[in-house]
Computed example of a mutant assay.
Amino acid sequence: MSQSLKIGITCYPSLGGSGVVATELGKLLAEKGHQVHFIAHSIPFRLGTTFQKNIFYHEVEVSDYYVFRYPPYDLSLATKMAQVAKMQQLDILHVHYAVPHAVCAFLAKQMVGSQLKVVTTLHGTDITVLAQDESLKDLIRLAINESDGVTAVSNDLIRETREVLDISRDIDLTYNFVDKRVYYPRDTSALRGDFAKPEEKILMHISNFRPVKRVSDVVDIFAKVNEKVPSKLLFVGEGPELPKIQCKINELGLQDKVHFLGKQDEIAQVISLADVLLLPSAKESFGLVALEAMACGVPTVGSQAGGIPELVIHGETGFLAPIGDVDQMAKYAIRLLSDEDLARRVSEACLNRACVDFCDKLITKQYEEIYYRVLGREVPKLDPVWR
C-alpha cells in the first residue's frame, strides 16, 4: 500500500489483555504493509518466534551498573525507543499503558525530536489503579497530556480518566477487537467428553485470578447453578487467588465438578467448550475475554462493571447484574442453560455483534486514521483486499 508507516509498539509482553490487543494490532498493521517494530523486554507472547513480514522485535536490555539500587528499566526502555526511532526512522510510537510506557515515549521524543509522534492507549489499570495513587497522578497526567494522540478501550474508561485526572484533552474511543480468522466457534465434540457428560452444561471463567476478578463469586454462582442444572465448571488461567479458590471448592464439596486448566494459548478452542462464560469482576475497563467468548458464540453472564455493559448487551448477547449479586447471576445462567431457544438466539447475536461492532479490520482502520491525523497526513484509501 502507499503511504505505509513505520510504527513502534510497546506493551507488556506477558499475559494480559493489553498485550494481546497490542500484539494483534501490530500483526494486522504489518499485513496492511506498515512496518511494525515491537520494543519490549521480551517477545510478546502472542507474537511468536517465527519470521513475519514487516514485523521486527527490539529487546530492551537493562543495565546492572552497581550504582543503581534497582535496574532502571524505564530509562533503558526510553533509550531503546529513541535508538529504534532514529535507526528505523519511525513515524509513530504507539504505547499501551501510560505508566511507564507513555512516560518513556515522552522521554524518547525529547531525544529524537518532535517529528516522532506518540499515541497512548489506556487499557484500565493505569487509570483505575495507578492513578488512584496521589504520588503518581501528576506523572500519569503528564504522560497523557504530552501524547500526540490518546485512545481508550471504553467510554467508561474515558469518563474515569477525565474524573480522576482532570483531563480535558480529546481521547479517542477505540474498542478492543478480535481477529475473526482466529476467534470463531470451534468443533469441540471430541474434547467435550473429557470434561462433562452429554447431559451436563459447561460454565467457564478465564482470568489472572486477581481479587478484582471476584473469582470467589464464580464459585458461588456455579454452586447455585449446579443445584438446578447438571454442570461442570472450567477455570482457565493462574494467579494469586487460585489457592484460596481451590480451598473453597473443597469446602463446598465441588471438587469433582471443577476442572483447572491453567494457562492456555488456544483460547478460541477452549472457550468454544463453554455454554456460558462467567465474568463477575469488580472492575473491568473492557472485558476482552467476554469479546473472545462472544466471537465464539458463547454468551457472558457477568457484572455491570466498567466497560462490560458497552460490550455485553443485557438480554441480547448475555446477562448482567450488579457487582456481587451472585443470586441474580446464577438465575441468568440457569435461564440460559435451561432454554435451548434462548441460548441459540443469544449465541447468534453474539456472533453477529462480534463480527460487526468489534471487527478487527474496523478497529485497525480507526487506529490508522489516528496515526495519520497526528502526523498531519491525509488518510490513504483502503486497499481493495482489505475492504
Rank of each mutant, 00 (worst) to 15 (best):
F51S: 12
L203I: 11
Q246E: 12
A330G: 07
A102M: 10
S114A: 13
G48V: 12
H41W: 14
M1Y: 12
A143E: 10
Y66H: 09
K80M: 12
E61L: 09
V20G: 01
P384T: 13
R373H: 13
E24T: 10
N250L: 11
Y332M: 09
V95G: 00
Q132T: 14
E160D: 09
R335M: 15
V298M: 01
L93I: 10
F209I: 11
S216T: 11
K331A: 15
T120F: 00
I140S: 03
P100V: 05
S154H: 10
G239T: 05
L342M: 15
K257Y: 06
E369Q: 15
D74E: 15
I92L: 09
I55M: 07
D64A: 10
V312C: 09
R353H: 02
K224R: 15
V326R: 03
T364P: 02
K365W: 09
V356I: 12
D383R: 12
P243Q: 11
Y371M: 12
T23S: 02
T23F: 00
E24Q: 14
Q269S: 08
D64Q: 13
I267K: 04
Y183R: 02
M87W: 00
R214V: 01
R210L: 09
F260K: 03
R159I: 03
A102H: 11
A223I: 02
L122P: 10
T120M: 02
A105H: 13
A349S: 15
Q52R: 13
S14N: 14
T128P: 01
I171F: 04
S189C: 03
E266I: 04
P13R: 06
V182K: 15
P185M: 03
T121A: 01
R377H: 08
K197M: 12
E61Y: 03
R214C: 05
A321T: 00
A143N: 09
I127P: 04
V229Q: 02
F222P: 12
A349K: 12
D327L: 01
T10W: 00
V95I: 06
Q132P: 02
T188P: 02
I271S: 00
P230E: 08
H94G: 04
D383W: 12
G253M: 07
V118F: 04
Q52G: 09
V153F: 06
G8W: 11
A293N: 07
D256T: 08
E316M: 08
L233I: 09
P240W: 06
D194V: 05
S63Y: 06
D220G: 03
A22W: 05
L311Q: 02
E227P: 04
E348W: 00
Q132A: 14
